[in-house]
């Protein structure tokens, strides 16, 4: 299965409620089905806990975004089926019309390490090479996973997402190496 570490943090801020509402736009579903679809259709994203699914459904029901439409029994316990309401559909389409705000701050641990390596050790060359090796190794693992027979389109796209972000880090590391003299001078004055 996909290593989830790279992507889970990116989706962490996304509301579980919006994801469940989005999945419910297709047809009414019960909690177990929503949990399974969440994990199958969003590969690479941290699996959602059953408890979180049910707690979120209760909150959405309280807010009038979903309603109980019946029960289902498929060889197991009887399960409550939920359907999206008009308010819920409006909510999910309003959310989809928004954009994710581009990150406004440079909060990268890589940047912090480069600056502190220059301050504390006078050079960041060794760190930059080691970090490059670590990033490239992870990219190799993800690339090998992409070449696995039978990989789903969803997993492929999620892996591409992780690869592109690692690639961006690597390009930044190379730029940092090229600008290291300027930065060193700035830190020392």
């Amino acid at each position: 299965m996909l290593d989830r570490l790279f992507i889970e943090c990116i989706f962490a801020c996304m509301s579980t409620g919006h994801i469940l509402l989005g999945l419910l736009t297709e047809r009414p579903k019960h909690g177990y089905e929503l949990k399974r679809e969440h994990d199958d259709r969003l590969p690479g994203v941290k699996p959602i806990a059953y408890g979180q699914v049910y707690a979120t459904l209760q909150r959405l029901e309280r807010d009038g975004k979903v309603a109980v439409s019946g029960t289902a029994k498929e060889g197991g316990p009887e399960r409550t089926v939920y359907e999206i309401t008009g308010d819920g559909a409006d909510e999910v389409h309003r959310w989809l019309a928004e954009i994710e705000p581009p990150a406004p701050y440079v909060s990268s641990a890589l940047f912090v390490r480069v600056v502190l390596a220059l301050i504390a050790e006078g050079t960041a060359d060794g760190y930059l090479l080691r970090q490059r090796a670590a990033h490239l190794e992870r990219m190799r693992e993800l690339t090998a996973r992409k070449n696995t027979a039978g990989i789903s389109a969803g997993e492929l796209l999620a892996t591409d997402y992780a690869l592109y972000h690692l690639d961006a880090d690597l390009r930044w590391l190379e730029t940092a190496r090229q600008r290291i003299d300027e930065l060193t001078q700035e830190i020392r004055t």
């Binding site: 090479l129 990033h135 490239l136 990219m139 690339t143 690869l163 592109y164 690692l166 390009r171």
Partner: peptide, 19 residues
């Protein structure tokens, strides 16, 4: 880098030398 990730090994060249 995404092409390099297909390789078993990387040789980094900088300023005419294997860095």
């Amino acid at each position: 880098n995404r092409v390099a990730a297909h390789a078993d090994r990387e040789i980094v060249v900088r300023d005419g030398a294997a860095a």
